[in-house]
């Protein structure tokens, strides 16, 4: 659960997203093959699960049938209560990412613009980036109370650090030739920032953004489990565990996973559309 230790270093673009990247790639293939490729993995997972369940390889009190799980999850979704929890978590993640981005991108650009400024703050940023965000819960509870604000604040803080770090690196690693080219045309510093450095930073910003979303999701789920939540996927999972609703617990875990995966894939698609030149 050490969200803060997830490495978001530059040059690790493909980590954690290689699967989604492959799916994107697969989307361009002919339909039949694409469907086969996409379904193979999940089918395999369900098959292994079912074999473990039916062959009683795992204690039956710990592992429900995959089909019962899927059926119960479908009922929970249809009834709307899982959708409510799902949306609550999604909204909290969205808030924390919005806050982290609005505060993180400008600060990252400002820090990256002056090499010496970033170097002098590097230790502090690295320190907090390496601190498990969950270790800060008590502090944020003191500051913001038990409500949603504390949860969003911790997640936003953890996500903010990752965004600042990545944006600053993006600015520092901007191609000098492009900056020189703009300068040779007589562009002012402000114009170079707006027209060149901002765009140069975008690929790294998206790397930061995707990592930030994963971290925010982890933090929000954990916060929902343990600090006075009445809804959200984290709350739902721990509730199902305590009341021994095995199918609900497994189903909720899968739903939370789907959320993380969906967010990552969504961002990747946005990234490919906006940063179309990345890696080319």
């Amino acid at each position: 659960m050490h969200a803060g230790t997830v490495d978001a270093g530059p040059g690790r673009k493909n980590q954690g997203s290689s699967m989604s990247a492959r799916i994107l790639k697969a989307l361009k293939k002919p339909k039949a093959r694409r469907c086969a490729e996409l379904t193979l993995g999940p089918v395999f997972l369900v098959a292994v699960w079912w074999i473990a369940f039916a062959g009683e390889l795992v204690n039956k009190d710990l592992l429900p049938s995959p089909f019962a799980t899927i059926a119960d999850t479908a009922v929970a979704i249809a009834a709307g209560d899982m959708i409510h929890d799902f949306l609550q978590t999604l909204i909290r993640v969205a808030y924390s990412i919005a806050i982290a981005t609005v505060l993180g991108v400008p600060i990252g650009i400002a820090l990256g613009a002056k090499d010496s400024v970033y170097r002098s703050l590097e230790f502090v940023i690295d320190f907090f980036r390496s601190t498990p965000a969950t270790a800060m819960f008590p502090l944020f509870l003191l500051l913001f109370g038990l409500g949603d604000i504390a949860k969003i604040a911790v997640a936003a803080f953890a996500a903010w650090l990752v965004i600042v770090f990545n944006v600053a690196y993006g600015v520092m690693n901007a191609r000098q030739t492009r900056i020189l080219a703009a300068r040779s045309m007589g562009a002012s510093s402000l114009r170079i920032f707006k027209d060149v450095i901002f765009f140069e930073t975008l690929p790294q910003t998206f790397v930061g953004l995707r990592t930030a979303v994963s971290i925010a999701l982890v933090v929000i789920i954990v916060a929902e489990m343990f600090i006075g939540a009445v809804d959200g996927m984290g709350h739902r999972i721990i509730d199902a565990q305590i009341s021994y609703q095995l199918t609900d617990m497994y189903g909720s875990i899968l739903a939370a996973g789907a959320m993380g995966y969906g967010l990552n894939l969504g961002l990747l698609i946005v990234e490919k559309t906006i940063v179309h030149w990345s890696g080319r």
């Binding site: 030739t177 020189l180 080219a181 007589g186």
Partner: peptide, 28 residues
């Protein structure tokens, strides 16, 4: 005006070729 050795790193990939050509006039 200056033409760089490494065109890949000198052109702005986020702009279409035509907008790259427009850019210095925009700066002016």
């Amino acid at each position: 005006s200056y033409v760089f050795q490494n065109y890949r790193e000198a052109l702005f990939p986020w702009l279409r070729a035509i907008d790259n050509i427009h850019y210095p006039l925009k700066v002016m």
